[in-house]
Design a protein around this nucleic acid. Structure first.
Lengths: 182, 182
DNA sequence: CTAAGTGCAAATGTTTTGCAGAATC
DNA sequence: GATTCTGCAAAACATTTGCACTTAG
């Protein structure tokens, strides 16, 4: 099941091209942060929630539910977390401000960390599918400014820039060859 | 578990609060534009494609597939278009550059016109779910500027601002009346 | 004519849910 | 100890697809 033959260069994040994204201000571990949130809601920190949170924050890659299910729902050791539980915890982590949906690819919601990783926006190359992260304070400022003009109280924003990355927009180059661009 | 009591006021677009969004530069009718596209692909302009295109471009509201199905799949006059056909045509209109997905709400893809309507961005109220459109030239300028710093060639962008709209951020307020908000 | 398009019903794939037993506070 | 959680299997949904029949070009 889950056909999945897509050619999507899936979710690759171009860290090299990113600006000042990468500085990490660790205060509390993700699991701790999650526990705090759960407390405020009168909910409980369970083994499953802890396992899933650790798995998710083990790296900074983007991911979707299916990937977590692949990794966690078939373990035989004590670290198994079922499909339903995974689907139930993800919205909690979102509500906790630790995750956010950034896209939908192949019929699935794609998440990224919203905790322990600096705020940033994305440039997406329509050719190589590369996701370039960038950080620019003026974006936030402008958003803030526009919002206030509309009496809107900003909590977050998402800016995605679509186009061609440096590599893909560079014509076959040098020569007199016909550039088959576009 | 996972509360989820969302009050989704679905897809309402607050035109009043919108800025200069509204100027319309009509060149060719949507149906014509669509026909042109179909021609280039060796495809045919059918009654169903024409009906659907007209229905979609009759107003500038955002919509999802289900809404079109509601309106078109149960007609008894000659204007019926089936569910499958609707789902088959939507991607065509996207490819034609006439529509684009702008969000996902309640598990459905939300579309908006990408033809005959000026470019704009969105503010989305997390409480009443209202979609406020706004247009601000500085957004495009800033995007352009940032992109070029990264050697990125911009083709389009999407900016969504999340937060609370004027109404929802106003505290229960003044009166003792229960405002059944909205 | 003949390739492309449509409607229907059935299939797919993701996400949600009711329940009974298990675990946290 | 009561409430919240988990896993399971089944359900709910949105979207897609196979097929026989229509239709545009």
């Amino acid at each position: 099941m889950i056909a999945e033959a897509s050619t999507h260069a899936p979710l690759s994040v171009d860290k090299k091209a990113a600006d000042d994204v990468g500085t990490l201000s660790t205060k509390v571990s993700p699991v701790e942060k999650c526990r705090e949130f759960l407390l405020t809601k009168g909910l409980r920190m369970t083994r499953e929630r802890s396992i899933l949170t650790e798995e998710i924050f083990a790296d900074h890659e983007h991911f979707d539910a299916e990937q977590l299910i692949q990794r966690l729902a078939q373990r035989t050791d004590g670290k198994r977390v079922s499909r339903s539980t995974i689907y139930r915890i993800l919205p909690l982590l979102e509500e906790a401000g630790m995750l956010r949906k950034v896209a939908r690819q192949d019929g699935r919601d794609v998440y990224e960390h919203d905790y322990g990783y600096p705020r940033h926006d994305h440039m997406i190359c329509r050719k190589c599918n590369r996701l370039v992260e960038f950080k620019n304070t003026r974006v936030r400022e402008l958003v803030e400014e526009i919002a206030s003009e509309h009496g809107f109280r900003t909590e977050a924003h998402r800016l995605e820039v679509y186009g061609l990355c440096r590599t893909c927009s560079r014509p076959p180059e040098s020569r007199h060859k016909k550039l088959n661009l576009l």
